[in-house]
Computed example of a mutant assay.
Amino acid sequence: MRKLIILTCFLAFIACKEEKKEVDNKEQSEIAYASFGEKITDENVISKEEMAAKFENLKSGDTIAVKFASNINEVCKKKGCWMKLDLGNDKESMVRFTDYGFFMPLDSDNKEVIVDGRAYVTEISVEELQHYAKDAGKSEEEIAKITEPKITYAFEADGVLMKP
Rank of each mutant, 00 (worst) to 15 (best):
I64E: 11
K39S: 13
N44L: 09
S47E: 13
S93I: 12
S47G: 09
N57S: 12
K54W: 05
V75G: 00
E74V: 08
S70T: 09
K39Q: 15
S93N: 09
V45R: 05
Y100E: 06
I72F: 01
D99G: 03
K59A: 15
I40H: 05
E92H: 14
D90R: 08
E50Y: 07
S70M: 04
G37E: 01
V45T: 12
M94S: 13
L87N: 07
T98K: 15
N57L: 09
R96E: 13
S47I: 12
L106Q: 09
N44F: 13
K84I: 14
K67E: 11
M51T: 15
K79P: 04
F102Q: 05
I64C: 01
N89P: 00
E49T: 02
K54L: 15
E50K: 13
K77S: 00
V66F: 08
V66N: 10
N44A: 11
T63S: 15
E74R: 11
S108G: 02
R96I: 10
F55T: 00
D109M: 00
N71V: 07
K59M: 15
D107R: 00
K54V: 14
I40E: 05
E43I: 09
S108V: 02
F55A: 02
K67Y: 07
G61D: 01
A69N: 11
G80V: 07
F103W: 03
N44Q: 13
G101K: 03
C76G: 06
L106K: 13
K84H: 06
S70L: 05
T41P: 04
I64W: 03
E43M: 06
C81T: 03
E38Q: 13
V66K: 06
S47K: 13
T41S: 14
V75R: 01
N57D: 10
D86P: 05
K67I: 12
E49C: 00
K54P: 03
L85S: 14
K79I: 06
N110C: 03
T41N: 05
G80T: 03
D86Y: 06
F68K: 10
D42R: 10
L85W: 10
D107C: 02
E43R: 10
G88H: 01
S70D: 07
K79E: 15
V45Q: 07
F68N: 11
A65M: 12
M94Q: 12
E56L: 05
G61Q: 01
K67L: 08
G61M: 01
S70A: 14
S47P: 06
D42L: 10
V45Y: 08
N44E: 15
D109P: 00
A65V: 13
T98P: 00
F102W: 06
S93T: 15
F103R: 11
A69D: 09
N73D: 09
I64V: 14
K48Q: 08
D62W: 08
N73P: 00
K77A: 01
G61V: 04
G101T: 03
I46Q: 08
K84G: 08
K67T: 15
F103D: 07
